[in-house]
Design a protein around this nucleic acid. Structure first.
Lengths: 331, 331
DNA sequence: CTGAAAGCGCTTACAG
DNA sequence: CTGAAAGCGCTTACAG
């Protein structure tokens, strides 16, 4: 592997001069030497060793994406999409991306330090550990979808509350009066809790509040049995806070001979590409994943360029996408 | 950031003794020192600097995943799934994963060298450049789905030919006689060409060969217009070599008032999770993505551990998954 | 079992 | 515009 030393010898200059050319500091090197060195570089296909650069300059060019969870998190289309966009944007900005899945927040520090990461992006619930993580890692940290109550957290999120409102208003407008909600980890103040609050507030105002037995704090196993919704005394519609789960639920309904939206209407969340592929296509609350990735990466880059930058919270809009999974109950 | 030097000072030993403990070479250090050093390590939360280790030991612990293409390749559910599994398996084995998307093979060398990668995995068509890539990068390289004719290539693939045969046999068995094929880059000898060859060979034997106008070498834009299949003189079934494209095709049919499988039957490829979510659920040729990732990572790890290991080609099986997108035309 | 020396490939900080 | 020196944090190879 050819090094700056080799190039320096061949060009008859010092390593420093080579280093300056490699780093584009052309004002500090004579035109003649620039050309000589560049031609040697391209002749041998010299590539700087970033481990060495990282070690001496304390700047690795590495950004770590940290996902909370276990197993293959990229199988989830939402994660796949957002991680894909982020690594694309980071790559375009000249950074290297490492993706890590962690179960315990204590893995985080180890992960960030070993490679001298210059910044990190976090997905999933880290709210209770944010302070600790930040104390142990003095690098720019950007979160996604955090509802941490810390005053200073840089977070990119969406208007989950409004998402819930939109779903409820649409259902009400379509003539539904008895509806249900299904989300995860409702006891934590995360995205699903906010969606729930927005959803239930509208229903309450409309005079048809969510009854307790219509709220499912659900992992998939505990989703309500579809046939509970066939007797008319049960909800006519369900707001499920993830397209994927909404689709799985509709499959379970179908396997029992029930149909969306005749037997129960469904509204999802995210607007993943597959939401348009199902039958009926899924009515859902859309969030713009690409835009979210864009803002997250740009914000991180800004903080990496200027570490004195104040923390910022960005909230992106959501919208209702009407397709075919909600029945019109107005006569 | 605490270093081995700091620990050494505190423990009253040399850096080398600390290094040995950090690397688990316990036989070379006295029990007393091991304990002393380990307690300091955990007290300060020492984490080795892998840039430094990489630089001095020439072994970075980094594996690079290289995807050919542009834009967000992880949006594709197949890529998301396999990249997710691979990075999971690599992480479990103690390696760091970097994902890069390249358009030109010349980016590859730069990518691998800058971080001193110890191994790399390639997706997508690199067949013509494999020799060049290998010459420039003397590290273990494992390919996926390559049909390179080089004698020595380590590749993990699937039996694409058999996949095509299975699709054709099933269609024939269901009474279809006039069928079509749709794949990409058929002129290159890649996965789709092999699927095509398997598919057409069975049809030929069965006495109903593929006519030229029933073969679509298709990017999505050039997929055959669905309504071309409504007049009875056109194919009654289409084998589309990707679930995603099959699903998109069925949506286009539906937008024209045509239905799967009544107006045209469809067989996909991959058996992505979404294949079961559509209406009708998609009959498809299944490949086991997790297993493919497993073998790919294990093979790479083997070659990294023993660089004299001979090249190996692994071919995984495929199977037919019957769902509801193929009409029964018998009787 | 222990450590002093040298070096990995680069950059920082300085002197000229 | 140029370069000699020192150092980043670690490991290799050796001597004891």
């Amino acid at each position: 592997m050819i090094t700056q030393k080799d190039i320096a010898r061949e060009a008859g200059v010092s390593v420093m001069t080579v280093s300056r050319v490699v780093n584009g500091q052309y004002k500090k090197v004579s035109r003649e030497n620039i050309e000589k060195i560049q031609s040697i570089i391209s002749r041998y296909g010299y590539v700087p060793n970033l481990s060495a650069r990282s070690l001496s300059s304390k700047s690795s060019g590495i950004v770590v994406l940290i996902i909370r969870g276990k197993g293959n998190r990229l199988m989830d289309p939402y994660n796949g999409a957002i991680v894909g966009y982020m690594s694309q944007f980071l790559q375009e900005a000249g950074y290297s991306t490492m993706v890590y899945t962690v179960l315990d927040y204590r893995d985080v520090t180890r992960r960030l330090r070993t490679w001298n990461a210059q910044g990190a992006i976090f997905f999933g619930m880290f709210d209770n550990e944010i302070e600790q993580i930040r104390e142990e890692n003095k690098i720019p940290l950007v979160f996604n979808d955090s509802y941490s109550t810390l005053r200073q957290v840089t977070n990119i999120g969406i208007d989950d509350f409004k998402g819930g409102q939109l779903a409820a208003r649409y259902l009400i407008g379509m003539g539904h009066r008895l509806v249900g909600f299904c989300g995860t980890s409702l006891s934590d103040n995360g995205v699903d809790r906010q969606r729930f609050l927005g959803f239930s507030s509208v229903l309450k105002e409309a005079g048809c509040p969510l009854s307790e037995e219509s709220v499912f704090d659900a992992d998939l196993e505990s989703l309500p049995p579809p046939d509970a919704y066939a007797d008319g005394r049960q909800p006519t519609a369900l707001f499920i806070t993830s397209d994927l789960k909404a689709i799985e639920f509709s499959l379970r309904m179908r396997s029992q001979g029930l149909h969306v939206p005749q037997d129960c209407s469904l509204i999802g969340f995210d607007d993943l590409p597959i939401a348009g592929f199902t039958t009926p296509p899924l009515t859902t609350i859309r969030q713009d994943i690409r835009q979210k990735a864009r803002y997250t990466v740009d914000t991180l880059l800004n903080h990496m360029a200027d570490s004195s930058r104040p923390s910022e919270r960005i909230v992106l809009d959501v919208s209702l996408v009407v397709r075919g999974s909600v029945a019109d109950l107005r006569t």
